[in-house]
Amino acid sequence: MATMTMVKALNAGLRRALAADPKVLLAGEDIGNLGGVFRVTEGLKAEFGGDRVIDSPLAESGIVGTALGMALGGYRPVVEIQFDGFVFPATNQILTQVARMYHRSHGRVNVPMVIRLPYGGGIGAVEHHSESPEAYFAHTPGLKVVAAATPSDAYWMIQQAITSPDPVVFMEPKRRYHEKGEVDTEAIPMPLHQAKVVKPGKDVTVLAWGGMVRPCLEAAIVAAGEGKDVEVIDLRTISPLDDDTILTSVARTGRAVVVHEAMGTLGVGAEIAARIQERCFYALQAPVLRVTGYDMPYPPNRAEADYLPDLDRVLDAVDRSLAF
């Protein structure tokens, strides 16, 4: 068992994947000599060479499109998009090429590739550096989307994503990059596409992923002091959703609150709420509530504390749910 930050855990996970399979490659802007702007790939180019840890020209469409070609050529590319807001030049490649290759080939051609996406706010950044674009990708058939919330999940999930036969958009919450946690590198990890009950409770189910899990856990602690027993689920996988874990919990508690940083309208929370009301209707004692970013472009960072869901907003929703 070792204690490390999420950045170090990702670095260790990538190193292990590179060592385990000579077909694994990394590519992205500034990932080699600099080790990435967040240092996630620090030291890997020196260790595995420039053919396997590729410093790319400044073009996201190029990075993703050529990675697809390498995947078709038998490699397992892991590309880094430097910041969430800069994935958009690559969306044509991701949506029309990467996501559809398996389907278009009648299931003959796999695309084992990972798109690493440092995402989310709370880091005092300028425009385009704090976004949460998971819904765009989760809306696209053929892509898998996962989000790590802890160093341990980051370590294991990145390796599992790399061995996945499908393309995976791998969301890394930047605001958690430097928080430490325990990582057991000998453990047997849980399946990639499974949600985790991170705090059991019986009164209301709070669902979150990535950077939002922590304020939900904090809210659960405060709520416990007020005699409210909150269950917190770290979704981990956004596409596919782990319906079993979600629905089993809500069937038990009868109340659900979904929390995400991205805008609420037509977001992932809407899909989760729809599934819950379709499949748990008779168990529900309150409407499914959402706590999300507001329907506007991510604001200047001096206003981000008001924009981002936090402990208070989660507690407020828990109270509203329980008041029904």
């Binding site: 309208t265 507001y294 329907d295 506007m296 604001p299 200047p300 001096r302 206003a303 924009y307």
Partner: peptide, 21 residues
């Protein structure tokens, strides 16, 4: 900055739901 200022800068014709938000 006051976040409250931002809702009516998203669209030239602000949808009602945004003002409610």
């Amino acid at each position: 900055p006051d976040l409250a200022q931002w809702w009516d800068r998203v669209y030239a014709e602000t949808p009602h739901a945004l003002l409610t938000q």
